[in-house]
Design a protein around this nucleic acid. Structure first.
Lengths: 385, 385
DNA sequence: CATGCTTTGTTCGATCTTCGGCGAAAGTCA
DNA sequence: TGACTTTCGCCGAAGATCGAACAAAGCATG
């Protein structure tokens, strides 16, 4: 007899992961009797969590009834709050996007204004998708700064004036709210989207600043204070003259971030304000810009080489605004990482551009919300209620 | 009704962790009925895994019978194989040391010779402790090189000629064998011994070389290829002239490892061959040696500062031969880490010398073996057999 | 020191879960 | 069309868990 692999929550986890699509699959995977599985599945169907679709392929006998998450009944939202934008995705329980939106929005306007905007957009998206507000089960929010994940309170975020210690979840009633750093939700989204089989992954966001989301054993590593992955202020050699807003000098972000590259281009007589301008210059074939991006890649690679030795990931994904010119960025990164990291760690390492697009953070935030809702404990609570 | 927190294995986990010492405790913690707990405990006692001791303190009623792991019946061993030594600890199931030994032994003699030595010493220790060979349940071995943990095969270890891909566990019959990197078992030992409540911990070993064991979420992080924590070859700034045996230059180990310090002392006219000699010089009050150790601390601190930003640990423990002069080493490390890491990450960070002594690796290896044996799955298998 | 109170631990019947066999359903294959 | 295969619901049997009742073992109190 297998130990105890068979609560309703566990069954649902197998269905949602795609590991099992029929009752027989479930019986095989869990080791439980078919009758027991049927009972579990019935409970899940009754609660509106699972639905049966038309019969699938027969393998020589009666074709099994396919099971899948009930995609009509629930709604989840992912919110990507940037310094100057707000992107949102409304999703069903299996992660399909139902509606999206994007607005300019300054996070510096403070939590009340920003969250009011989110709340209003939420209604808008729900309307578009034709689902009532009460179908919304959970809400994930990615913010550009450190967060105490357990409470959803931003923790001294440098670019979010007015948000420090603000209890974001309290703003929304009747919905579970999960708040996390934007890079973390991007890492989660990329992992679930494109690297679900990978245990250890780093997602490096190269935008105005530089940050990193860490997946360890398939789960987000947030660290003791939720500040893990803050690689923008790691020191790089040979740039002691570059001062950083954090008060130190030679920080990676201060020499290889989008803002830093833009500043250096401006000094060279090529006016650029943001990472977007840098990308535009590179795409227009400007060799100075190209050289600086490649050099930035080398510096990022220097830091990543250390982290590869330390953390030994299987995949490093490069995302963020500057990854739109990823050929040049990646060339510099790869060059340095493969030179400076140990062979054992780089043998099976791949360094690739993000496969998830501009909505990576909103999608990841939505996935955070969905996975929270689908956690075995939560499902058992719902089913046994 | 709580989901399902109550297999025999779970019950034993609570007992072994010290979370519960009586049947009542167990009932309270698991949510199961007292009668059910009694049944589970009876099964564990019958299998010789748990024993009852005299009654404990009464809290106003009948005094509870204390439960604890049955320390008489089983034996576990931890082996610390270094470049030139072999330390072994024989332990009972709750981690108490029953017997220890230490020999000079060159790992370069190859697996057959070295493991024969271990096997013979094992019998010796078992004899000393008065336990039969068949009481030995599991064996943990820490080796100075990377290991594919799942199979127990060393993976291109640089200082273990003849060991590459050798299936260490096959050498021992009738015993489960776990092989891991020495720094990993040291980290495990230190964590369980002194920082059990800490989720994220780094154990940095500063000896001839420099390595790091990573505890994340209370578990060892080994990385994709089992090479995680190999921080000895991370580049430090300003030492591009220092060549390293790995083929690169400016590796941390090549400038701050015990061997590197010894070499530089020799160049200064103070003959030193190993980290031990360096320690001796420092303890004799030599200011050159002291200065070099402190400088090494700064360089190690530079690397750790990056890792603190990236990983955000709660505790960094400094161990290894050079930690015997930890005042000086720690001064340099702390100085740099607190200067170069972000405040959020250093606010609650403590950097301390190892509390576990010279036998840290052997103890950790033994704990690895014990925890493997006590894993709920394994216990359920034993009890249901 | 007898009596009641409290907490622990066991016993045992009631209840709830799970299992597994059987038959119906729904397909394939010859 | 009939034999075979696989799925799935039904239901009695077997097993696990619970909770009430009781025994055990101490403390408190007059």
């Amino acid at each position: 007899m297998t130990p105890q692999p068979g609560s309703a929550g566990d069954v649902l986890t197998l269905i949602s992961a795609g590991s099992a699509t029929t009752r027989s699959d479930l019986a095989r995977l869990t080791g439980l009797a078919r009758s027991t599985i049927s009972q579990r599945v019935d409970a899940l169907i009754e609660r509106g969590l699972v639905e049966e679709t038309e019969s699938g392929e027969s393998t020589g006998g009666r074709p099994p009834r396919q099971l899948r998450l009930h995609t009509e009944k629930h709604a989840f939202a992912g919110v990507d709050l940037g310094a100057t934008h707000c992107r949102m995705s409304l999703m069903d329980i299996s992660g399909n996007v139902l509606a999206e939106c994007e607005d300019a929005l300054h996070i510096g306007e403070g939590p009340d204004n920003v969250l009011a905007h989110v709340d209003q957009r939420l209604d808008h998206l729900l309307g578009q998708a034709g689902r009532p507000r009460k179908a919304l089960r959970a809400l994930g929010i990615g913010v550009p700064g450190p967060v105490e994940f357990a409470t959803g309170r931003p923790n001294n975020p440098p670019i979010m004036p007015g948000w420090n210690d603000y209890p974001v979840p309290d703003y929304f009633e009747g919905v579970e709210v999960l708040v996390d750093n934007d890079v973390n939700v991007m890492a989660l989204g990329e992992h679930r989207n494109a690297y679900a089989g990978t245990s250890h992954l780093l997602f490096v966001k190269v935008g105005t600043g530089i940050g990193c989301g860490i997946m360890a054993e398939g789960k987000l590593h947030r660290g003791a204070q939720g500040s893990a992955g803050d690689i923008g202020h790691i020191r790089v050699s040979g740039h002691d003259d570059a001062g950083c807003r954090c008060g130190n000098s030679a920080c990676l972000e201060a020499v290889a971030g989008g803002a830093a590259i833009a500043r250096r281009l401006t000094e060279l007589g090529l006016p650029a304000e943001s990472g977007g301008d840098v990308v535009a210059l590179v795409q227009s074939g400007n060799t100075q810009a190209l050289r600086l991006v490649r050099e930035a890649g080398r510096l990022i690679g220097e830091v990543l080489a250390s982290l590869v030795n330390f953390f030994n990931p299987e995949v490093i994904v490069i995302g963020g605004a500057l990854s739109r010119v990823h050929e040049h960025l990646l060339a510099g990164i790869r060059e340095t990482v493969y030179r400076r990291s140990l062979p054992l760690a780089t043998n099976h390492l791949s360094i690739t551009p993000s496969r998830t697009g501009i909505n990576a953070a909103a999608l990841g935030a939505g996935i955070l919300a969905i996975e929270h809702y689908l956690s075995p404990d939560n499902i058992n609570r719902i089913v046994n209620a």
